[in-house]
């Protein structure tokens, strides 16, 4: 009896960049699995390879070695555009196109998929409602006119436009003030239970990782040091690095 394949699977993935002083190993022998409707947070200090690891999933970065499978299929064997349109992508400061209205930002992929205007319009309105923004008021505005929190909500709505099974989020709440961030964390948790997406979040905030993620992958110098739940990391750290990292990155409130 074989169980269904994991939604995302990284097998012994390695990425070497050419550098001025010889090749630089950014990601080394990383193997990870993300299950259906699971939220995995990849965490680590800057330069640990977490963003590179995520970008290899939607092939913004091509691995030097190893295999990445989505729903059991090697990503390199799929049409690049189809692959990416099946994976929502949210970047740190939203990445909204400043010359397009909020509605056009969200509906852009629908437009490129040749949906008719009415269907796109309805989808945009639905998504704005979903992320808690009034469609008639916010839709025609330009991103510049929105607050940081609103922009990030629009960015999430844009990633959901084609209803992809997977969402990748690169430091999605990193540029927000603490109050907005806490509010968006709550909204995120609410959304994920309603939508059932498989989500990978890259963050450097351990508290955020424990709040949002079902599991956390802790990376250091290109390698995954430990993957597990908050409890597993706390009670059964794989190495002294894990213990040190938790101590350094969780304030008194969590300790």
């Amino acid at each position: 009896m074989s169980s269904p394949p994991p939604m995302i699977e990284l097998a012994e993935v390695r990425k070497v960049f050419p550098g001025p002083a010889g090749p630089v190993v950014a990601v080394d022998e990383v193997s990870l699995e993300v299950g259906r409707a699971e939220v995995l947070c990849i965490i680590g200090t800057s330069g640990c390879g977490k963003t590179t690891t995520m970008k290899m999933i939607n092939r913004l970065v091509e691995p030097t070695e190893g295999t990445i499978r989505i729903d059991g299929h090697d990503v390199r064997e799929q049409d690049l555009t189809r692959l990416r349109r099946g994976i929502g992508y949210v970047v740190q400061r939203g990445g909204l196109f400043p010359h397009m209205s909020v509605a056009r930002n969200i509906g852009l992929l629908c437009e490129l998929e040749r949906w008719d205007e009415a269907r796109t319009g309805a989808r945009v309105a639905e998504l704005l409602e979903l992320v808690g923004l009034p469609p008639d008021e916010v839709g025609p505005r330009h991103p510049r006119a929105l607050s940081g929190g609103q922009q990030q909500r629009v960015s999430v709505a844009r990633a959901l436009a084609l209803d992809p099974p997977i969402i990748l989020m690169d430091e999605p709440f990193g540029a927000l003030d603490p109050i907005t961030r806490t509010q968006l964390h709550a909204e995120f948790s609410d959304l994920r239970t309603r939508l059932g997406k498989t989500i990978v979040i890259v963050t450097h905030d351990l508290a955020e990782a424990f709040t949002l993620g079902d599991r956390v992958a802790l990376m250091d110098r290109g390698r995954v040091v430990q993957v597990g739940t908050e409890v597993e990391l706390r009670e059964d750290p794989a190495s002294s690095f894990v213990t040190e990292f938790l101590r350094a990155h969780l304030g008194a409130g969590h300790a």
Partner: peptide
Amino acid sequence: PELTEAARGMGLRDAQ
């Protein structure tokens, strides 16, 4: 570059 990467990452072809 963040905008162009967001565009490529969400599935726009190079010409798009």
